[in-house]
């Protein structure tokens, strides 16, 4: 080993250390990279040709991404909520409630609301989605107003909403399972080439838009300002209440999109259990992605990476054959470790 290699190595470590301490996303990205390498290595045994391996690898990845698109989309909204200094526990229940409304609207059975009004096919789907989006935003706005105008802590307001939405949905549905028309299933299941990519495309598209909103628009920057220092934001003429309410409105919008994707993917919904725990998964993705629970710091890209880390980890647990009961333990462990590794400022 000559001097230059030592010097280069030293320089590399210094660069690494610098990046690690200055770039909040660096450790997240490294963690993801390591997991992907491990995952690829595990997949890499026992294939006849590179082509076979690649198809298998690709299929595995598409599965991972598609299964996590729902959480991934909701985590994008959750990023705004948490950066603004809030939290939203209601998203799983809201998703079920909106899913139920959409399914009742498009039901091709005897109870279908739109079908009984003579609206069928594509128009019925569009109307149902529009009504769903409006409803999602209304519910989100109500939560936001409870928090800002009613001065209820976000944790309590959304915990209440979580209980209310699921309970009311179950009462109304009473075990009735609407039939989703096949045209609606196309939304998530239509194939591009050989692959079912639609949920992934929706996710990435929304992530791109939200990244733009967060980085370049007044609203996006005001969310950070409000979460970082509400007093300064208010004294700088930022409408703090409006910003705080809007993040829940946007959350409601994204929850609706997730509901549409979920209903379309599976064609049915278990109103008692679907979406339960989604709020925690979304929060975990946001936190692993480097967003601070106390608000002010965080990024959309981080959340996408965070979602991927949790997704790849789930996949790894599968590949390793970890017993199902232990998986949650691993999830918890990885989440805590990820946050432990993050660069944190002490006050």
């Amino acid at each position: 080993m000559n001097n230059t290699t030592i010097k280069n190595r030293k320089r590399f470590f210094e660069y690494f250390k610098y990046k690690w301490t200055t770039e909040p996303l660096f450790s997240t990205a490294i963690a993801l990279l390591i997991m992907i390498i491990v995952q690829t290595a595990i997949l890499g045994f026992g294939y006849d040709s590179f082509g076979d391996w690649f198809i298998s690898w690709l299929n595995n990845w598409i599965n991972i991404l598609r299964n996590n698109a729902g959480i991934g989309i909701m985590a994008l909204g959750m990023t705004f909520v948490i950066i603004s200094g809030g939290i939203d526990l209601s998203i799983g229940s809201t998703m079920v409630a909106i899913g139920a409304v959409i399914m009742m609207l498009i039901d091709s059975g005897p109870k279908g609301i739109l079908a009984n009004m003579g609206i069928k096919g594509v128009p019925s789907c569009i109307i149902a989605i529009i009504i769903g989006l409006i409803l999602g935003q209304v519910l989100g706005t109500i939560i936001g107003l409870l928090i800002t105008k009613g001065n209820i802590p976000p944790f309590i307001a959304t915990l209440g909403a979580m209980k209310i939405f699921r309970s009311v949905t179950q009462q109304f549905m009473q075990g009735y399972n609407p039939k989703v028309p096949s045209i609606f299933l196309e939304i998530a299941n239509i194939k591009i080439g050989k692959f079912m990519l639609m949920p992934i495309i929706y996710w990435m598209l929304i992530a791109y838009i939200f990244n733009f909103i967060s980085k370049r628009t007044i609203f996006g920057r005001q969310v950070i300002a409000v979460g970082s220092n509400e007093k300064t934001a208010r004294l700088s003429g930022v409408n703090v209440e409006k910003v705080k309410t809007l993040v829940y409105t946007i959350m409601g919008f994204l929850v609706t999109i997730t509901a549409v994707i979920q209903v379309s993917r599976i064609g049915s919904m278990d109103f008692a259990n679907a979406g339960s725990g989604n709020e925690m998964d979304a929060i975990a993705a946001v936190v692993v992605g480097g967003t601070s629970m106390s608000g002010g710091r965080g990024s959309i890209i981080g959340t996408v990476l965070g979602t991927l880390i949790i997704a790849v980890m789930n996949n790894l647990l599968n590949l390793f054959g970890v017993p199902p009961f232990l998986r949650e333990a691993f999830k918890g462990l990885i989440m805590v470790c990820a946050v432990l590794l993050q660069r944190k400022e002490r006050a």
């Binding site: 920057r221 950070i224 300002a225 979460g227 970082s228 220092n229 007093k231 300064t232 934001a233 004294l235 002010g296 710091r297």
Partner: peptide
């Protein structure tokens, strides 16, 4: 309005 206590009221440290 330039507030007193710059740290608390004047600047946003994450930006």
């Amino acid at each position: 309005y330039l507030p007193r206590n710059r740290k608390e009221n004047g600047i946003i440290k994450d930006m």
